[in-house]
Design a protein around this nucleic acid. Structure first.
Length: 265
DNA sequence: GGCGCAGCAAACGA
DNA sequence: TTCGTTTGCTGCGC
């Protein structure tokens, strides 16, 4: 499998199908998003600069952008603050029912966002807590970097390499299908695997290699449409990882089918 | 021992 | 009525 080293903190990014985008300045990235006005672009570069350029990750139907969003010192501080601020689900909310069996979710979860928003996961509807200062800071940094606005964040905390997340797609109906999902990683670096929906299981119809990458401390992974239509993703068990990781996935949730949250932002 | 992957479980909606 | 989808665990092979 091909492997290539990224600049900065990240160690590796590997896939047979990944094309590497030549390094560009952030301007190229921002221009991609029409919501950022022309005259605002240069000023936003001054406010927020990236330790490394964006990397494009592409395969059939998969479209992601990867960058280091925070330098190590800042990422360390954000991790520390989140450890103090974030309140994770406990009790029944920390369980999931799969095929009639109830399991403890192999990680901790929390949901924050704009007032009144809810998120449905495995049939369980969760209320969003109000934004904390640190979460708002990170959300603003993601918005500055991407030109996208988000009204909700799902937080997953993996205490070590035993904690994990099974293969799934983020294709809930309440998500704005035009908005990418922005995944910010803090803490231990963990492998992240994409698998095409047609390449799963013994009777898979196509031979498509999985796309694997390592999500570094302080990194941002943008999953652009239609990635979540065709590709499942997972965070596999890594027993050698002994330290915790916090992952924040920023999303744009629709209020209902007629009115989008854009109106509220 | 770590990792990748297939198979399995029951219920619901299209 | 049938089919697809769902998430986590377990077992097996490498």
């Amino acid at each position: 499998m091909d492997q290539f080293v990224l600049q900065g903190q990240n160690k590796r990014l590997c896939s047979d199908d990944v094309k590497r985008r030549s390094p560009r300045k952030k301007k190229v990235k921002v221009e991609k998003h029409e919501s950022v006005k022309e005259e605002d672009k240069e000023s936003s570069f001054e406010e927020f600069s990236h330790p490394i350029p964006w990397q494009k990750i592409e395969a059939g139907g998969l479209d992601c952008d990867y960058a280091l969003l925070f330098l190590k010192e800042e990422a360390d501080e954000l991790f520390r603050q989140l450890e103090e601020e974030v309140v994770y689900s406990t009790g029944e909310e920390a369980k999931v029912q799969v095929f009639g069996k109830v399991y403890n979710i192999p990680r901790k979860q929390a949901t924050y966002g704009n007032p009144g928003l809810t998120y449905t996961y495995s049939g369980v509807r969760r209320q969003a807590w109000p934004w904390t200062p640190t979460l708002e800071y990170i959300r603003n940094a993601v918005t500055d970097a991407t030109g996208q606005k988000f009204n909700f964040v799902l937080i997953n905390r993996y205490k070590d390499g035993q904690d994990h997340m099974g293969e799934h797609r983020d294709d809930e109906k309440e998500l704005d299908p035009s908005c990418p999902i922005a995944s910010v990683s803090l803490g231990a670096a963990r492998d992240f695997v994409f698998r095409h929906r047609d390449a799963r299981g013994k009777r898979s119809s196509r031979q498509i290699d999985p796309v694997k990458l390592e999500l570094a401390h302080g990194s941002l992974l943008l999953m652009n449409p239609p990635t979540n239509t065709f590709w499942y993703h997972s965070l596999p068990v890594r027993r050698k990882v002994l330290s915790p990781r916090i992952n924040l996935t920023f999303r744009r949730i629709l209020v209902d089918t007629r009115k989008t949250i854009k109106e509220e932002l």
